[in-house]
Design a binder for these strands. Structure first.
Lengths: 116, 116
DNA sequence: CGACTCCTTCGACACCTCTCGTACCATGGG
DNA sequence: CCCATGGTACGAGAGGTGTCGAAGGAGTCG
């Protein structure tokens, strides 16, 4: 195929199906929060393999699925790797300011906990 | 006793002990989110018995404890009833804008789900 | 083709969570 | 002093969650 949907596609919730509780729950896990932080910091898509997480690959797959199914990230296969991107626009439209305040809060807490 | 700490006091986390993940988790349950919404709307303390929740009393106790232990609300006994208040100042200091955006998001979602 | 990389699936396990009912304690009013 | 009211404690059960390891599919590169 000459197109960039290099094969299997993944199920994502429509913007209208994204639930606040689901998003908050997705963000309430340290591993997932660190993924989201990383994703937010690097402005563009990141492969799963980019992340250095303290869990095994199968657990990583699990966390990315939670993020995808709650509507926080969008995933697409690109060859052998899977690219991840925050759904900033959808989240901003549904819950204005929420993502930013969570990101800011997470950064502030990280700094607070590693002392100065 | 002439004082208002009419006896048993409840354990609350210090502001410095409040964790973002804990707050997000506390807010990710529909029952607790509705409690927080109600609390935010009425600007001042509310007795547990004020809330009309779709769960039994013991479950209500459980949810209030989660909210208190995560640092979202402050509780104090007042005679036979227990008063609840949002810890707006502490949360605002730790995670600026977070509570407001969650409240706004919850209100928007409620309106979105009950159609127009 | 074969090997390698990347990710998924599956079963399993420990743990936590939400829920309930029943029994209970603490306060305040007759 | 006793009871009504408001909340708690405890045990239990159904279901979800985070974690792993082993096995396996999908692409890519030689």
């Amino acid at each position: 195929m000459t197109d960039r949907d290099t094969s299997r596609t993944l199920a994502h919730p429509e913007a209208a199906e994204i639930r606040l509780e689901g998003v908050l729950h997705a963000l309430s896990d340290p591993v997932r929060l660190s993924i989201v932080l990383d994703l937010a910091a690097s402005a563009d898509d990141l492969a799963c393999s980019h992340f250095d997480l303290p869990v095994t690959k199968s657990t990583t797959t699990h966390h990315f699925r939670v993020l995808r199914e709650s509507g926080v990230v969008r995933q697409a296969y690109r060859g052998t790797t899977k690219l991840n991107a925050l759904r900033r626009d959808d989240l901003e439209a549904l819950f204005p300011g929420l993502l930013d305040s969570v990101l800011t809060a997470a950064a502030a807490e990280a700094e607070r906990l590693t002392s100065t």
